[in-house]
C-alpha cells in the first residue's frame, strides 16, 4: 500500500502529566480578576498582546509584560498561562532553543570566517566557534599558527555537523562553543534529525530533548552498537558507535594524538546494511516520539526501541498487524507507547 490518506484530526494533547511543581492553586484565588472567561488553568491559551489581568495583586513572570504606569499584565508570547501562587507566567507553545553554559549541542557550520566558524544551533542567533576553541590535530600543546588559519576549512567547512559544548554566553545572547574534549568534534557515519521547535529549557515539558545526565549514549542492537547524541537544542545524531581508541600508555597531554587521524575526517567508515537499518529505525522512532508529544531521553529511547523491535518480530512471526497502519513513524511510536503503558 504505497499511499495512505487520512482525514484531518485535531492535534493530540501531550501524553505525559504536567509536573507537580506548577499550578498550585491558592486558596484565595480570585478568578474574577482574569478578563478571560475560561478558568485560568494550564489549558488557558493567551496570545501576544492579550491582557491577562489588571489586578495589581499578581506578579509578572516569564512571557509577560507590564506597560509603564499601569498594573495590567500583558502576554508577550502565544502560550499557556501558568500560575504559581501570585506569579503569572506564560509558557510559549513553540520556542527556540535558549543556549545555556555547559549545554551539549549539535550544530551545523553555516559560514567560515577568518578565525572562527558560525554555527547553527537552532538558537535565535548563530553561535560562534573560534579556531582557538578546537583541538588541533597533533597534540594539545601545539601552537595555533597562521597556517591553521589559512587551512581553517580542513577542520570544518560549510555544512559540516559537529557536537560541541556551550562555553560562554555573550550579552547579546550569542553563544560561544568549544570542542576541546575527545567527546566533541565532527560527526559522521550516521543520520541527523532536527526536532523542530522542541529545544531544551521550558519546551522540554512538551516533548523533545530533555536535559539529562547523559546526552550521549550507546544503544545495543542485534546488528551492533549505535551511538546516539541528543543535542539539548533538539538536534539529534544517530550513528555507528566507534569504540574509542585503546587507552594505551599515552600521557594526558598526548591524548589527542590517537584520534587526530580521524578527528576531522569527512569520510565515512564501512557501515553494514543491518546496522544502517537499525540506525534508520532509531532516528525514525525519535521523530515519532516527538510527533506523539513524548519527551526524548536515553531511558525513553531504549525502552521504545526495544519494544518496537519486539513488536516487529511478533508481527513477522504471527503475521498480523500490530502497528498503527499508514501513519508512519507516529503510528509506530503510538502503538509502542500504548503497549508500554499496558505492559
Amino acid at each position: 500500500m504505497p499511499i495512505t490518506i487520512l482525514s484531518p484530526s485535531a492535534a493530540i494533547p501531550p501524553q505525559h502529566a504536567p509536573p507537580d511543581d506548577e499550578d498550585i492553586p491558592m486558596a484565595d484565588d480570585d478568578d474574577s480578576a482574569f478578563l478571560s472567561t475560561a478558568q485560568p488553568s494550564s489549558k488557558n491559551i493567551v496570545t501576544p498582546g492579550e491582557t491577562i489581568t489588571s489586578d495589581p495583586q499578581w506578579m509578572r513572570g516569564h512571557g509577560t509584560y507590564i506597560p509603564p504606569n499601569t498594573s495590567t499584565i500583558i502576554s508577550t508570547v502565544a502560550g499557556t498561562l501558568h500560575k504559581t501562587n501570585k506569579l503569572l507566567s506564560v509558557q510559549p507553545l513553540r520556542a527556540r532553543y535558549q543556549p545555556e553554559i555547559g549545554d551539549l549541542v549539535i550544530g551545523r557550520i553555516v559560514s567560515v570566517q577568518t578565525k572562527k566558524w558560525s554555527v547553527d544551533i537552532a538558537a535565535p542567533t548563530l553561535a560562534s566557534l573560534p579556531l582557538s576553541s578546537i583541538n588541533l590535530p597533533g597534540g594539545i600543546l601545539r601552537r595555533r599558527t597562521a597556517v591553521d588559519e589559512l587551512n581553517i576549512r580542513t577542520f570544518f567547512s560549510e555544512g559540516d555537523l559537529l557536537v560541541a559544548e556551550v562555553q560562554q554566553l555573550h550579552n547579546d545572547g550569542n553563544a560561544a562553543l568549544h570542542t576541546r574534549s575527545l567527546k566533541y568534534g565532527k560527526l559522521r557515519n550516521g543520520v541527523f534529525t532536527a526536532l523542530a521547535g522542541a529545544g531544551g529549557g521550558i519546551m522540554s515539558r512538551r516533548g523533545g530533548v530533555v536535559r539529562s545526565k547523559r546526552q550521549t549514549f550507546t544503544l545495543q542492537t542485534a546488528a551492533g552498537e549505535i551511538g546516539v547524541v541528543l543535542g539539548v537544542n533538539g538536534y539529534i545524531f544517530v550513528s555507528k558507535h566507534v569504540a574509542p581508541a585503546e587507552a594505551r600508555d599515552v600521557s594526558i597531554t598526548r591524548l589527542e594524538e590517537g584520534v587526530s587521524e580521524t578527528l576531522y575526517s569527512s569520510q565515512n567508515d564501512e557501515v553494514e546494511p543491518g546496522l544502517r537499518r537499525e540506525i534508520a529505525r532509531v532516528s525514525t522512532l525519535v521523530r515519532g516520539l516527538v510527533a506523539c508529544g513524548a519527551k526524548v531521553d536515553e531511558d525513553m529511547i531504549v525502552r521504545v526501541y526495544e519494544a518496537a523491535v519486539e513488536m516487529e518480530e511478533e508481527e513477522r512471526v504471527m503475521g498480523e498487524k500490530v502497528f498503527g497502519v499508514g501513519e508512519g513513524a507516529k503510528g509506530v511510536v503510538r502503538s509502542v507507547l500504548d503497549r508500554l503503558a499496558v505492559g
Binding site: V110, K186, N189, Q267, N268, A280, S283, G328, V332
Partner: peptide
C-alpha cells in the same frame, strides 16, 4: 546544507537492496 559525510551515508543507504529510507517505516 548537508555535510559530505551525511550525503555519502544517505546515498549508500538508499543504494542498498532493498533501499533503507530515512523513514524506516
Amino acid at each position: 546544507n548537508l555535510s559530505p559525510a551525511e550525503l555519502s551515508y544517505l546515498r549508500s543507504s538508499l543504494a542498498q537492496s532493498p533501499p533503507i529510507r530515512l523513514d524506516h517505516t
